[in-house]
């Protein structure tokens, strides 16, 4: 490898006038990118299998999405349009700082519109807007091993994956039923990919699990602290584990979004006061704002806007 760049590096014209600072495009050095790229290709070839990779220190702490950031940095180019969400929102701390990071080190265009993005980095949600071919969804993953809380030893979980021995996971779901009368796991709900590997879909609500099944988009998962990359190619079976008499179900909400009136979306509960007041709004801010712009009105949308709408 050549010595670190000391001269400012300028992106090609397509990246605009912006001049990149005195480090490599997208922060990572080329050797690191090659290493991550090789891991990504093997991850795609073995859907759901966690490929070990030499995770680097990033200029943010572990837990802030260093795995997703490294995956995005390895695949992103000057032509890409990036969207970053944190629990569905474009405007929360984690999303804002990672978006700013890539605008600084890669000078890429950013968007909040799901449909316009070529790469969507996400923390714990899948956008409501159905993803399409050509888009890549990059997940930030804290604990990639779905069996970790059942078996702490890496040597043992690795052997369980090798032997396709997933009985323990079904026991865990069964114990849910024994205690609660139903499968009480609501997020990081285990899935089986391509009929072979049991995979942790990262702490997304189980509401999002069906969106992973035969998605048009490529899904990449990066776990920085745990040093694992895994993937689900497009049009791949992703089946949530369940039992015949306790089939997999997603969360149901008994009311629409308070701002845009959307149903069949994942809602966040927002506490309004200390007297039990609360509202339920779309977790996906872009989806909610797009619907409001289209004239959809929820019951608690600000009165002035409501009057304007009426």
């Amino acid at each position: 490898m050549s010595a670190p760049h000391t001269e400012p590096v300028t992106a090609p014209e397509s990246a605009g006038e912006a001049e990149l600072a005195a480090y490599n495009f997208a922060y990572l050095d080329e050797q690191t990118k090659r290493m991550i790229r090789r891991a990504i290709l093997k991850a795609i070839a073995i859907p759901g299998y966690q490929v070990p990779f030499a995770s680097r220190e990033m200029p943010m702490p572990y837990g802030w999405g260093t795995g997703g950031v490294q995956v995005t940095a390895a695949i992103i180019g000057p032509e890409d349009v990036l969207k970053v969400i944190d629990q569905g929102a474009d405007d929360t701390t984690n999303a804002v700082s990672i978006r700013a990071f890539f605008q600084k080190v890669a000078a890429v265009r950013a968007t909040t519109h799901t449909a316009d993005a070529t790469i969507i980095q996400t923390r714990h949600r899948i956008p409501e807007h159905t993803l399409k071919e050509g888009q890549v969804l990059v997940y930030q993953v804290p604990i990639p091993e779905p069996l970790r809380f059942l078996e702490p030893r890496e040597t043992e979980t690795r052997k369980m994956h090798a032997l396709e021995e997933y009985g323990l996971m079904h026991v865990k779901l069964y114990e849910d039923i024994a205690r609660h009368g139903r499968i009480a796991t609501t997020y990081a709900y285990p899935v089986k990919v391509h009929g072979r590997y049991v995979m942790d879909p990262s702490p997304t609500p189980k509401f999002d699990n069906p969106k992973m099944h035969r998605s048009e988009a490529l899904q990449l998962f990066g776990a920085g602290r745990e040093k694992r990359i895994y993937a689900v190619p497009p049009h791949t079976d992703v089946v949530s584990l369940d039992f015949e008499d306790h089939p997999f179900e997603v969360q149901q909400f008994d009311r629409p979004c308070a701002l845009c009136g959307a149903t069949h979306v994942y809602l966040d509960e927002v506490v309004l006061d200390d007297r039990g007041g609360r509202m339920f709004v779309c977790s996906d801010t872009d989806y909610c704002e797009t619907r409001q712009a289209e004239g959809h009105v929820g019951e608690m949308l600000a009165t002035s806007e409501r009057e304007a709408a009426e």
Partner: peptide, 11 residues
């Protein structure tokens, strides 16, 4: 940029 473009094609 060339290796990035080739990698995306390959990916």
């Amino acid at each position: 940029f060339d290796s990035q473009a080739v990698f995306r094609t390959l990916m």
